[in-house]
């Protein structure tokens, strides 16, 4: 096909719908909230939530993944622009990760050896991992889909951020249900669950987000 003809064809097409990252962010947030709302609606938050939050470590269980989710979402939507520089965006994610790592080390240092991994039953573990991953499936799919509207230079990284936002958002909701307040437990297994979703979404994104 002649390039001039191609240009004539392209110019005859209707203009694109406007690209509004805020609207796209809203869709992803809705996709995070929906399964979490259904889950908490069916099973309820933990009964002693207000009491548990008197211990300042416990609100961190919710605040850290929430912060990670918001930061990942912001970075994701900026990466939708082709000219975005990835490195500066990723630097912002370091804060919640550093706090989480610090919390883990602090808990390891202060807890007596017998109490460190006391809650580590196979059931509690698979419950935590399985439910977070399950709650993250819909938001991850929506985030990946939304990103197809964008023009990310780094498809795999964008997929990873979509998974990170979804996994962290799911963990935020799950944390209101979860009764494990030992940082060694929740930092480790929330972290693993979020990492699983992140890696899976990165692999999907690598294929899906090319353009």
């Amino acid at each position: 096909m002649n390039t001039d003809d191609l240009i004539a064809d392209l110019a005859a097409e209707p203009p694109p719908p406007r690209f509004r990252p805020a609207v796209l962010a809203g869709r992803i947030v809705a996709a995070v909230l929906l399964p979490v709302a259904l889950f908490l609606g069916a099973l309820g938050t933990r009964a002693d939530l207000a009491h548990a939050w008197a211990n300042p470590v416990v609100p961190l269980k919710t605040a850290l993944p929430l912060m990670l989710c918001v930061l990942a979402l912001g970075a994701l939507l900026r990466l939708a622009r082709p000219e975005a520089q990835a490195r500066a965006l990723l630097r912002g994610l370091a804060l919640p990760l550093l706090v989480a790592a610090g919390l883990w080390i602090w808990a390891f240092a202060t807890l007596p050896p017998a109490a460190r991994f006391a809650e580590l039953g196979l059931f509690s573990l698979s419950e935590c991992l399985g439910l977070i991953v399950l709650l993250a499936v819909l938001p991850a799919a929506v985030a990946l889909r939304v990103m197809r509207r964008g023009a990310p230079q780094r498809p795999m990284l964008s997929g990873a951020l979509a998974g990170l936002a979804a996994g962290a958002g799911a963990a935020t909701g799950y944390s209101l249900f979860c009764t494990q307040d030992n940082p060694l437990f929740f930092v480790t297994w929330y972290g693993v669950a979020i990492a699983v979703v992140t890696i899976a979404a990165a692999l999907v994104g690598q294929r899906l987000l090319r353009w």
């Binding site: 096909m1 390039t3 191609l6 240009i7 392209l10 097409e13 694109p16 719908p17 406007r18 690209f19 939708a80 622009r81 082709p82 509207r149 964008g150 023009a151 353009w211």
Partner: peptide
């Protein structure tokens, strides 16, 4: 060249 023009076309809404 045409592939590039098509990409510009498909992603033209991503320019701020």
């Amino acid at each position: 060249v045409q592939e590039v023009l098509l990409a510009l076309h498909r992603k033209r809404h991503t320019w701020r």
